[in-house]
Nucleic acid binder design. Structure first.
Length: 232
DNA sequence: CTATTAATAT
DNA sequence: TATATTAATA
């Protein structure tokens, strides 16, 4: 029952399009790695939150399930969570990082946040929802509800996003769509803000255990070309 | 304390 | 280039 499947990989034969009408696109689905109930609400109503699973946990579980299925009835599942799809990406380039306080969680360096298309989409939706005029980092961060996302992450991205907006209203249209991430999505998919998206990781430092609360770490990244590719 | 912006660092 | 960090300022 709740298989998470990337339809983008199945353009093959055994695909029944009639079954897909009205279904949300793969990118809009809520990853199993996110709790359905925001932590604030859960605690406010004293709902016991299921122990949060990391993206890798979910992927592993999916692998097991899918491999079991495909072996039981020779289904032609292509590569699901294989190779470069998504997994944790930690740049283990250690270099004299013994100066790390293993004590203060707040000061722990996080890996650089990677603004995946999904993350950015989330960001844009929240900003639009708030209105560009009154969307501030703290609020955006809260509404995005992404584990591990910090206010300065958002502030930094917001700063860049505003520059993008400024540049874009100044010059109606001309030249190629300069920005990869910011350019209007080819698939407008007018959906209200909903559903959490998780994503980040890859950094110079380390991938320490982060506590979005009391649980796991975050990661999962689409390592697409950030340099010359426009997805979504 | 948070937000904004520009400059600078990684 | 993308993201982080810092400093000045509101």
């Amino acid at each position: 029952m709740g298989e998470e499947v990337r339809m983008s990989d199945y353009d093959g034969d055994n695909r029944v399009f009639e079954w897909e009408v009205g279904l949300p696109s793969a990118g809009d689905l809520t990853p199993l790695s996110q709790p359905l109930i925001p932590p604030e609400l859960a605690s406010a109503f004293s709902i016991s939150t299921e122990p949060r699973r990391s993206a890798t946990d979910v992927n592993r579980a999916s692998q097991n399930t899918l491999s079991a299925i495909s072996s039981s009835n020779n289904f032609n599942f292509k590569s699901l969570n294989d190779e470069r799809s998504q997994e944790e990406f930690v740049e283990q380039g250690d270099e004299a990082d013994l100066a790390r306080d293993g004590s203060d969680p707040r000061k722990e360096k996080r890996p650089r946040l990677v603004w995946t298309p999904q993350l950015h989409k989330r960001f844009v939706e929240v900003v639009k929802h708030l209105g560009v005029g009154n969307a501030v980092p703290k609020t955006i961060m809260q509404l995005m509800n992404v584990e591990g996302l910090t206010r300065e992450n958002v502030a930094s991205h917001l700063q860049k996003y505003r520059l993008y907006l400024k540049r874009k209203q100044g010059l109606s249209d001309d030249g190629p769509s300069s920005d990869q991430l910011f350019a209007p999505a080819p698939t407008p998919t007018p959906q209200m803000m909903h559903m959490p998206v998780i994503g980040m990781a890859h950094g110079n430092g380390h991938m320490g255990p982060y506590h979005g609360f009391e649980s796991h770490r975050y990661n999962m990244v689409q390592h697409r070309d950030w340099s010359g590719n426009k997805r979504q």
